[in-house]
Nucleic acid binder design. Sequence first.
RNA 1: GCGCCUGUAGCUCAGUUGGAUAGAGCAACGGACUUCUAAUCCGUAGGCCGCAGGUUCGAAUCCUGCCAGGCGCACCA
Length: 572
Amino acid sequence: MKQALEQALQSAVDTLLQDGPDTVADAKKIVVKLSRPKMKEHGDYAANVAMALAGMLKKNPRQVAELLLQTVQWPAAVESCDIAGPGFINIRLQGACEAEALKHILAQGEDFGCIAVSDASEKVCLEFVSANPTGPMHVGHGRGAVVGDALGRLLSTRGMKVHREYYINDAGSQIGVLANSVWLRMQELQGESITFPEAAYPGEYIIEIARELLKKRNYSELLALSDDERSLWVGEQSVAANMVMIGADLAAMNIQFDHYFSEKALHESGKVQSLIQHLKDEGTVYLGTLPPPKGKEVKDYKPVEQFLFRTTDFGDDVDRPLAKQDGTATYFAADIAYHVDKFERGFDRLIDIWGADHGGYVTRVQASMKALVQREAQPDVLLVQMVNLTRDGKPVRMSKRAGTFVTLREVVDEVGADAVRFNFMTRRVESQFDFDLEEAKEKSHENPVYYVQYAHARVAAILRKAKEEGIVLQAVEDVDVSPLVSDEEQALVAQLLAYPEMLDTAATRLEAYRVATYVMKLAANFHSFYHKNRVVTDDIVLTQARLLLARAVKQVIFNALTVLGVSAPDKM
RNA sequence: GCGCCUGUAGCUCAGUUGGAUAGAGCAACGGACUUCUAAUCCGUAGGCCGCAGGUUCGAAUCCUGCCAGGCGCACCA
């Protein structure tokens, strides 16, 4: 319907410009786009072309609108149109003509809103979470997890093949710290007195891991090993234990990955070294010294000669070191090798979801890919802003040492996966927001997720009631939708039909939160409709029409919640 | 100092990439269950859209400059 109206208006614009002078070349590029006015007095659709054209044609906008309306040939469904305000063209449709489209929604069911886009065959590699395997996930990781998972589901509705990947940072000095922490706890458990250094991981979970490892291997046997051998074994085992824990936490939120990619394995494959060698051969790496960082007090700064990657040639601020003082590869070197590897595995598009603290990394990775991969496709990086945990409005210091560290799992267990997921999805990733633990717990019944789920359950209740009353649902195509004329019904119909378009914008802009705001609004409109109109009545035709509408609402809520990874219960 | 993100009701956030009278939830106040689910609905109240300029028919939205908050800034990951 919308397209038909746009076409009609477009051809009117074309004929208008045809007659006019040729000096208005710019005007010919104008594409007619209709919008849904906020107020119903402004009709079902509104166009602002007249105002856009007015400037170019040097005419009064209302005058332009009038000229357009003289030539336009509307489809039959248009009841009236008029010129309003500064020059809007407001279009009003006949009664319930849009309601016919409800039938498509039910015919398509779970597929309603899903459209295979032109680049549907794209293989997308979606990297998210990638929390360090040195401890439990915190709430910030949870936000990234939820956002990533929902984005994956969203892109799947476009027909894209989405591969979910978790990059395990199981290499480098932090694993040594982890191994050391666990080993100290193991010694402690064996009755030895230890001093626990500042740099070690203090968490309770370290003791748990230590206890498990002592079951796996004899203490005396471990003592007999060399320090390096022991550190290697304890480190590997500890990483594995943490990944089991992280995997379980993710599963508690119904999040699964296709692949856990090991940084350590990447190093062992030799890909990092060969990448560095390749860059040296190419001449994009040179031996140089970086200036001291500005604005930050660095006590032990010493100018060091390093192998530097000329990322400045590709838009970066400074060149980036690929090798440390001791000659081993930096994290950055591994990271670009990892991204190159993704392209080599045949992905057409890379999407990374990182925490805001990795913001400084975006330009250098993108610059590197520009230098290394001969294609336009750059990794899209979503920076998820921090979550501020509060309790009763007061900030919760996320200190592992002070015992105020709140894990994601604790929050999920306390609040529930659906509530956590939905909550994280109601905000743009760019906005950092406060998550109040007490509020989430105590007021969980006023959480927006229940508001939406309740609307879904309500429709289910209506359908149960209809069944009880012995009403047999009419075949969808036979339902007479003409009784659906009230404001609430019209609003619902319009909103349901807007679902595919909303989903498409959300997918194009990688903004899954739009689905959440959409479905909240839909639930609100349904609740409002529910209170003003009774669905199951003695009027059989009206009942069948409203049942059709209610079922369509249920279907769209279900589809939207599915994209968000939130359940849609029939009973609450 | 530089880079990225943010600033909208008392609080937490939306605002369909420039449209008509800026919207929800929570908190406050007043109403609505003999009915298909009151986890809901209806109403009242609440605004210098951080500040100041600029761009145009039109700005919360775009451009510039300030102010405030968050994150980051070699040899960690």
